[in-house]
Each structure stands twice: as C-alpha cells, then as structure tokens.
Simulated assay, not measured.
Amino acid sequence: MATMQFSNERPALWPIIKRYILVFDVPLTLTLFLILSVSCTAMFSAGLDAPGRFEDHMRNTIIAFVVMWIAACVPPQLLMRFAVPLYTIGVALLIAVAMFGIVKKGARRWVNVGVVIQPSEIMKIAVPLMLAWFFQKREGVLRWQEFALAAVLLAIPGVLILKQPDLGTATLVMAAGFYVIFLAGLSWKIIFGLGVAGLASLPVVWSMMHDYQRQRVMTLIDPTTDPLGKGFHIIQSMIAIGSGGVTGKGWQSGTQAHLEFIPERTSDFLFAVFSEEFGLIGNCVLLVLYLMLIARGLFIAANAPTVFSRLMAGAITMIFFTYAFVNMGMVSGILPVVGVPLPFMSYGGTAFVTLGLGMGILMSIQRHRKLIQS
C-alpha cells in the first residue's frame, strides 16, 4: 500500500509578495522619488515659520504613495468599469454643490456628505477616464458626432466647476478631457477652427467673467497698478526668482520667503521659494526631472495595448505637464494666478492624492502591458 508523503516545506515568501511589490515602473518611480526629495527639501525650508506644515506634507506624501500603489495593482480593464459610475457620481456631486454647497471665501466648491469634500477634484480623473472609456467603446467608428458627444461630456462638469467659481480646477479638468479627445484623433482643422472661435469669443468671455477674474488678468498685464493688493503676489514672487540668480542664496537663506514677503509660500508659490534658494541651476534640475516624468509617461502611452489605456496614459501625462506649466507660468508672471499647485511639490492633500492616483494608473498600464506581452 502506497504511503502518502506530505511536505513540511512552506511556500517561499517572495513569490507571494512579488506580485504586490513589483507593480512599480522603475524609471517612473525613480524620477518621482527624486522630485519628492526636492519637494521635501524645499518644503522644510518654506515651512520653517509654519509649525506642522512639513510633517503634514510628509503625511500627504505617504497617503499619495499608498493610493499610487493601490491604483498600480488595479488592471486597466477594471478601471474601465469605474468610468461611468465615477463620472456620474462626480456630476451629481457638482450639481449638489450648485444647489446647497458650502461657501468659503466667496466660492461654493464643497459639499457635506458626512465629510466635507470638493467634488471638482474627482473630475480631474473621472473626466479623462470617462472619455477614454467612451472612445474605447467606439473604436473604429469615430465620426464628428462622436467627437461632438465627447465635447458635451466634457462641457457638463466644466461649466459646473466654472460656476462655483473655480477657474483653476476648471482649466485642469477641461485640459484633461481635451487631451483625450485630441489623442483620439481630433482633426487639426477642427482644433484650428476652435482656436479662431475662441479668440473671437474673448469679448463675450470677458463680460461673463467675475470681477476677481478680470482683476487677475489686468494684474498679469501690469502688476504694478496695485502693488500692495492684487499685484503683490506676482511682484514678490518675481523678485524672489530674480534674486536667486544662477546659484541661489542657499537652502533656508531666502530672504523673500523667510521675511514673509511671499504669500502661500508652501503651496501655490513654493516654486518662488525654491528658485530663490537654489537659483537657475536648481530650476533646471527640477525642469529636467519633470521632463523625464513626462517623457516616461508618453512612452507608456505610446506602447499601451488598448485604445483606453493609450488615451488614459496620454491624458494623465499631459495633466502633469499642465500642472507644472501653469504653476511655473503664474509664479513667473507670464500666466494669471489661478491656484494650480506644482505637481508633487506644493503642499496640499487633495492634489497629492489625485496626482498619486494618476501616477498609479500609469504604472498599472505599463505593468499589465508587460503581462500581456509575456
């Protein structure tokens, strides 16, 4: 009679946890680590006069990392299932904000659903997710009607966010959606026509803008017209950037920042603090890191196996570009101040989580592309 033998050997631990650890794309993770290292260095200096700010920034970084890891573990096919529900819930919450939202500093942007949330932040991911799902479902049958319907899906949350009013978030959401529509194959002729129509409609847009938004535009043109009021932010940030010179004044030695001339120095205007302390050389290093991040994201998008993953990866990558371009532009005085943070640098929990989610989706797309090919 044969005897049964049982092995006392336990399964190796590494094969079990390997699938959960090797979800990170190495080039993307390394670039992000370097940006976060620069971020922590700048935040420690900028937050010297704000007790607890650096600790909160580290907490936000850890939360964003956890969100990124979770998103990286979720396959793109599963993400597609969340597209319609997430978009629908986001639009419903935006309508709830318009009807009975919480008003802070003259803006109605928050709603209490047990906890106070800002639904417009959800749409930064929900809109490109929805549009990528939409074009995936219509692969091979794209006509002008499909692009028109996609424009409507983009316009609904965009208009609701503009009415809060929140020009900065509306810009980011509209840009994210436009990138998906463009990458789906929108004709250059249509883009040119829309550009001409946009320029022609500027007088109408100007008449519809709020007073504070018009003041931002006028301040951009000439900040010295109100140097102690609306132009104060831009003037002081430009002084800080210029005084940094080539090599900067040194870490924790920025006079504009530590004498409190730079407002919002840990959030929207952190780039001015960084420029003053690390100068042109530091700025060039930071720009190279952002370019590396964007280049890797575009590489992942170009090699994505499906329409959905390609559009989603391309849109997320261009969102990073938009964040960085708009923030550096407004701090440098070449764009209006619209409250857009510098990605993975500025203080802010919601923005960190949103960007971490986007980074995780990029890693998920790259990881599952490799699994398909193997």
Rank of each mutant, 00 (worst) to 15 (best):
S39I: 02
M208R: 15
M292E: 04
P51F: 03
S187A: 05
L357M: 06
V91I: 10
D226N: 14
H368C: 09
D226K: 14
P11Y: 11
V97T: 05
F261Q: 09
D25Y: 07
L28F: 12
A200G: 12
M328I: 15
A72L: 04
E121H: 04
S253Y: 03
W144I: 02
F6Q: 00
L162P: 03
V326I: 15
M345Y: 00
S309D: 07
A150H: 05
A98T: 06
L199H: 08
A184N: 03
G168S: 01
M43H: 07
D49N: 08
I125A: 13
L129P: 10
L22I: 02
I221F: 08
I191R: 06
M4T: 12
G348D: 01
N327Q: 00
T225V: 11
M345T: 02
R367N: 13
A295H: 14
F308C: 10
P203M: 01
S267A: 00
S39H: 07
L311R: 05
P341Y: 06
A175H: 04
L32Y: 15
L142E: 03
F100N: 15
I156R: 07
G140M: 14
N327L: 03
F325Y: 15
Q77M: 05
T31S: 14
I294V: 11
L93Y: 05
Q373R: 13
K124F: 09
L79H: 15
N8D: 10
Q5T: 11
L32I: 13
G231Y: 07
V340L: 09
V246F: 15
V288H: 00
Q136L: 08
R367V: 11
T306Q: 04
I35K: 05
G356A: 04
A240Y: 01
M318S: 08
T29G: 07
F33S: 14
T306M: 03
G248P: 01
H368K: 13
A315C: 12
G198Q: 11
L32M: 15
K163G: 05
T225C: 02
V38I: 13
F269K: 02
F299S: 10
V288L: 13
H258F: 11
L220Y: 04
I300E: 01
S267H: 01
S346T: 00
C73V: 09
I319G: 00
M218F: 12
V337H: 03
F44E: 04
V141C: 06
F274V: 08
W133H: 11
V67L: 14
I156E: 03
D222C: 01
L220K: 02
M68H: 10
D56E: 08
I63S: 00
T354C: 09
P85F: 10
L94D: 02
V307C: 11
F269L: 01
Q373S: 14
K230H: 03
R369L: 07
T255A: 06
I156D: 01
G47P: 09
W144A: 06
M330Q: 00
